[in-house]
Design a protein around this nucleic acid. Structure first.
Lengths: 252, 252
DNA sequence: GCAAAGCAAGAGCAGTGCTCTCTTTTCAGA
DNA sequence: TCTGAAAAGAGAGCACTGCTCTTGCTTTGC
């Protein structure tokens, strides 16, 4: 079954040689990409079914009709598979947030509405993919080593929030929040690193709001709101709307 | 303290004679309590070393010089051991927070200072016990079933925050935050469940702040602030101080 | 004193991550 | 076009895991 598939893949790739385009990505590389994707898909399926703890390389291989040792040609360890899923999850969440933002921009929504739209997208993605969410915002699963590959995708939501505030500054303006004297140095450092064009107090509030957004989402996804908060969407929207106020996004 | 709790599963409530007098807990029950505690201690040690994913019943038994099957007399499964550790972690965190609160009260600190003191205690406990923190506020580890035993200890920090605000109401008073019309029903439900004597808008803000506090702590403990926030204590204190403002705790 | 319950030990089952060897398939350079 | 290297799959095997079952031994309550 697997052998027939592989041979089929290599067979239809022969048609491609005719075009001879710049980087035709040979049949072998093509097959490798497909198998890699299939492994990740199946792993994601098991992840959604049972959670990261129960994800088993052998079970993935079994389901794909290959022997477990073959899988190690694609991912050198279970943790590497998990890392790949983590990167994909960050990308998926980031894309969802960016799509929501783009839609809000297209609808000419006010800054605060854009903020809420992005937060809502984060929440809905998390509820739709709870185990993937747990992978990236829950306890660090492997022996705790966040590879460098994750830092880019991981920051997409944060960058989006910065963008919203930045555009608000150029528009109707933001109300710069009050800030303790003790925070000055740290706030200036944060602003220099993340958004030199924004007031330090705003950047500091932004970072705090960023983590607090995921506090709200995590509590809902991880069940901490069970038997406490009933109307979760309304509660969430109100909370993130207050968060927007905290970073200085006014109504107009 | 937890000895009566731990024995509830095996149902050794034979200690209650018809007199109902508290029995001095025979040698066997005593040994059982000691072994149970030793198992949990060793498990906690391994938890701190390697994290929940690597916690192994066999390794715990090996370290204690007993055979793995013997351990099942005390905990019917690995998940039950984890559940016991979860309950203990909630209790430990709750105790740390309550101690900090009591100290602040004794020092006649103002409500907002009490709030900050409790938040600081939560953060410091989490940084001191990252893996135990991950157990209770990270991804749900087992097949996701939070037993009823956990709800009591789990709410200690939340109750403490409510207490602080309640006492502030009786003192210099709180500034009731603005609230959307859409949130009214939910806020009233929350207030009825959690603190009927407080304004619904305050209770809703309280629940949000509660989750946001753990968002801040989780981001720090789980490494999301790495290479972003440098002066973590100052940043944290400022953020939770703003949180206190959000629930209406004024300076005086 | 005795039956019942509690407990430790050991064997064993099914499953896991991972490594090693061996064979087959594919691809690129002479 | 042929050939040798690289890539891939198959299978056996190691050390480990959670968990169950059976076998003896000890403590306990009547």
């Amino acid at each position: 079954m697997t052998s027939s598939e592989t041979s089929k893949k290599s067979g239809d790739s022969a048609t491609k040689t005719r075009t001879g385009e710049a980087k035709p990505l040979g049949a072998r590389a093509r097959a490798r990409a497909e198998v890699t994707a299939a492994i990740k898909d199946e792993a994601r399926r098991q992840l959604a079914d049972e959670g990261a703890a129960k994800l088993s390389l052998r079970a993935v291989a079994r389901e794909l009709g290959m022997v477990s040792s073959a899988l190690y040609r694609y991912f050198p360890s279970r943790d590497d598979l998990l890392t790949a899923l983590i990167v994909d999850a960050y990308d998926s969440l980031g894309a969802a947030a960016e799509t929501a933002h783009a839609r809000a921009v297209r609808a000419e929504a006010k800054p605060r509405e854009r903020w809420v739209a992005v937060c809502r997208a984060v929440r809905e993605w998390a509820l739709a993919h709870p185990h993937e969410y747990a992978l990236i915002y829950g306890s660090p699963v492997p022996g705790y080593t966040a590879p460098q590959t994750t830092v880019g995708p991981a920051s997409r939501v944060g960058l989006l929030l910065i963008t919203i505030v930045r555009e608000a500054v150029q528009g109707p303006g933001v109300h710069v929040p009050r800030m303790d004297e003790a925070l000055r140095d740290e706030a200036e450092r944060l602003a220099a690193d993340l958004a030199p064009d924004l007031p330090p107090a705003v950047v500091a509030a932004l970072v705090a709001a960023w983590s607090q957004l995921f506090g709200l989402v995590s509590f809902e996804v991880f069940g901490q709101f069970n038997r406490i908060v009933e109307d979760r969407p309304v509660f969430f929207e109100h909370a993130v709307s207050q968060l927007a106020l905290g970073v200085g996004l006014m109504d107009d």
